[in-house]
Simulated assay, not measured.
Amino acid sequence: MNETLVTLVGNVATGMDYRESPSGAVVRFRFAVTPRYRDRQGEGWKDGATSFYTVWARRALAVNLAGSVASGEPLVVHGRLRVRDEEGDGKRRFSADIDAVAIGHDLNRGTSAFRRIIRADAPLTSPLLTVTQKAAEV
C-alpha cells in the first residue's frame, strides 16, 4: 500500500520493445520528461534538465501501446515509480522505472483517435455490448 504513484508528461524517446512472455505481452520504452519554466529576466520559456525513465506496460496495455504509439510522440504516463540502485564496474548507478497503469496521448499537443477493442471472450451480457445494442436501436 505504500507504493509511489506518479503521473509524468513527456515524449517517447525510443521505439517500443514488444515481447511475449508466458504471463502475457510486455512493452518497454524510454520516456523523456523535460520541465519548462518561465525565464523572468529574458521574458521567455526555457527547458530544464531532461529526466529519462524506463516505462513498462503489461498485458492488454502493452498490446494496445505497441500498436498505437511511436517514438517522439507526446504522452501522459501514470504508474508506480520504482527506483533501482545497481553497482557494476565499480560504479553505483540509479535508474527510475515506471510500471504503467494508464498511458495516453497528451492532447494539449495534438489530436488522437480512440478505437475501442471488443474482446472475443466478452460475455453477451457485458455492459459494453448492452450500450452498443441500445445505441443501435435508437
Rank of each mutant, 00 (worst) to 15 (best):
M1W: 04
E3K: 15
T4H: 13
L5D: 09
L5K: 13
V6A: 04
V6I: 15
V6C: 07
T7P: 12
G10T: 05
G10E: 09
N11C: 11
V12E: 00
T14N: 06
G15Q: 01
M16P: 10
M16V: 13
R19D: 05
P22I: 13
S23A: 13
V27S: 07
F29R: 08
R30E: 15
R30V: 13
R30N: 15
F31P: 02
A32Q: 07
V33L: 10
V33G: 04
T34F: 03
T34P: 03
R36A: 06
Y37M: 05
D39F: 08
R40V: 12
R40F: 09
Q41A: 06
G42H: 03
W45V: 14
W45Q: 07
W45T: 14
K46H: 12
D47S: 15
G48E: 13
T50G: 04
T50P: 02
T50I: 07
S51I: 03
F52H: 08
F52T: 11
A57Y: 04
R58A: 15
R59P: 02
A60V: 12
L61C: 13
A62R: 11
A62V: 06
V63G: 02
A66C: 02
V69S: 01
S71M: 08
S71T: 03
S71I: 12
S71Q: 04
L75M: 10
V77H: 09
V77L: 01
H78C: 09
G79S: 01
R80T: 15
R82G: 05
R82D: 11
V83I: 11
D85M: 12
D85Y: 06
D85K: 06
E87S: 09
G88T: 09
G90L: 10
G90H: 03
K91D: 13
K91H: 14
F94D: 11
F94N: 14
S95T: 09
S95P: 09
A96D: 08
D97N: 14
D97F: 11
A100W: 00
V101L: 13
V101C: 01
A102H: 04
I103C: 03
G104H: 05
D106Q: 05
D106K: 06
N108W: 10
G110K: 00
G110W: 03
G110H: 00
T111S: 02
S112M: 01
R116D: 07
R116W: 02
I117C: 10
R119Y: 09
S126A: 06
L128I: 14
L129V: 11
L129R: 11
L129S: 07
L129I: 07
V131G: 00
T132Y: 07
T132I: 15
K134E: 09
A135G: 00
V138R: 02
V138L: 10
V138Y: 01
